[in-house]
Design a protein around this nucleic acid. Structure first.
Lengths: 208, 208
DNA sequence: TCCTCCATTGGACCAAAGTCCAATATCTTT
DNA sequence: AAAGATATTGGACTTTGGTCCAATGGAGGA
């Protein structure tokens, strides 16, 4: 179940910080990649593994907070841990409201960083699993025809086939056909599964 | 659907701040209650309405951050907005990691505070709704007998009555009885409802 | 025009679930 | 010991849902 080995990315314009963090991370068994700037990190081809990002706030050109915003906008859900020499309250508030795992001021305890890194990696693992599952479910949902999609909504509202048929003004037989198709296309082994899929997909019952 | 009028609580040891905030809040149509200390706020009998808490960080005796921790420990989910004269980064990090809606430094824009207050109230409304629903569901779950609870788990896993019967080594007939009881006691109008209730309650299918 | 997808329906059945009825055996508690 | 909750089962049905096979009509693309 364990993914491939997680990678901890470090983005800091100070070479000595990069070296120190790389050493700390490697010595505790982490895979580390360092970058001297946010742009370098963006250009890097990210492998498809869990991980987290240790990010300096103040950097030339694109700073850490702006990189965070950019990642969010790009749909990259990698957890971010900020480190900073002279952080401000507004910076930390912005970072954490933006979903950062932590915001550490130098000098920080190695343990604090490592703890944040572990949390970040765990979060990312979890998030990636969810996203993969959602991707599959959405793909399946997209294979439904409009009518099947409609019947899907009725079914997960708990309505009987005959009630659905009445509401749509068609025969119960046809509902059965659509319903069977929905189950099959969605890969649901039972109605219980179908309901859970619907919850995750945000498929809502039609307005009464 | 709108609850009774929300209340904005203000806790600050500085009377002029209390007066100013009270004026601001009332002038924008909010119901406000002010307190000179965290202890005063704790002693106060909180009415059962949505709201949020505007909290000074530095105060004599119990400070804002400790009050936040205390509220969490007591299961009080009222959203907190921190205000502070000379906030530190560690304070803001602690506050936001503890779930604070915002952390504002004086002097702040009225609009920023009001925006945070609105968000807090909305969050609280939502949270209260969820908690009320959970309370009802948990109460219903508690009326189930051990066997019914067990069958509940099997049912929402999508298993057929006969399969459940086989697993438990009893007759299918008995499963039907338990199943009907579960539906009735849980107030589920359909299997779809039951599955959704189970998700919310964290009722898991038994290990295969 | 022909083919495919979509939506629709029918018939014939089978399997599963729900609903009445009633009954028995334990176990705990009053 | 009697009462009540819990767990169990049976019989007899009805209703629903699921599954074959088969067919029709319309819309849209090759």
């Amino acid at each position: 179940m364990t993914d491939r080995k997680p990678i901890v990315y470090v983005v800091d314009d100070d070479p000595s910080v990069r070296r120190a963090l790389e050493r700390l991370l490697r010595s505790t068994g982490h895979e580390a990649r360092t970058f001297a700037s946010a742009l370098d990190f963006i250009d890097y081809e990210h492998p498809d593994v869990p991980g987290c990002l240790v990010l300096d706030v103040r950097m030339p050109k694109l700073n850490g907070l702006d990189l965070q915003d950019l990642l969010i906008k790009k749909g990259n859900s990698i957890p971010v841990i900020f480190i900073t020499g002279h952080g401000t309250v507004p910076d930390s508030v912005r970072a954490l409201k933006g979903g950062a795992v932590d915001f550490l001021q130098k000098p920080f305890e190695d343990g604090d960083l490592l703890e944040a890194v572990s949390r970040g990696i765990e979060n990312h693992r979890h998030e990636r699993r969810k996203q993969k599952e959602m991707k599959i479910l959405r793909a399946r949902l997209n294979t439904l025809t409009p009518r099947e999609r409609e019947v899907f909504g009725f079914v997960i509202s708990g309505m009987l086939n005959k009630q659905i048929a009445y509401d749509l003004g068609i025969s119960e037989k046809t509902i059965k056909v659509h319903r069977a198709k929905v189950m099959q296309k969605m890969g649901a082994g039972s109605l219980a599964d179908l309901v859970r899929f619907a919850e995750k997909l945000g498929v809502n019952p039609p307005p009464a």
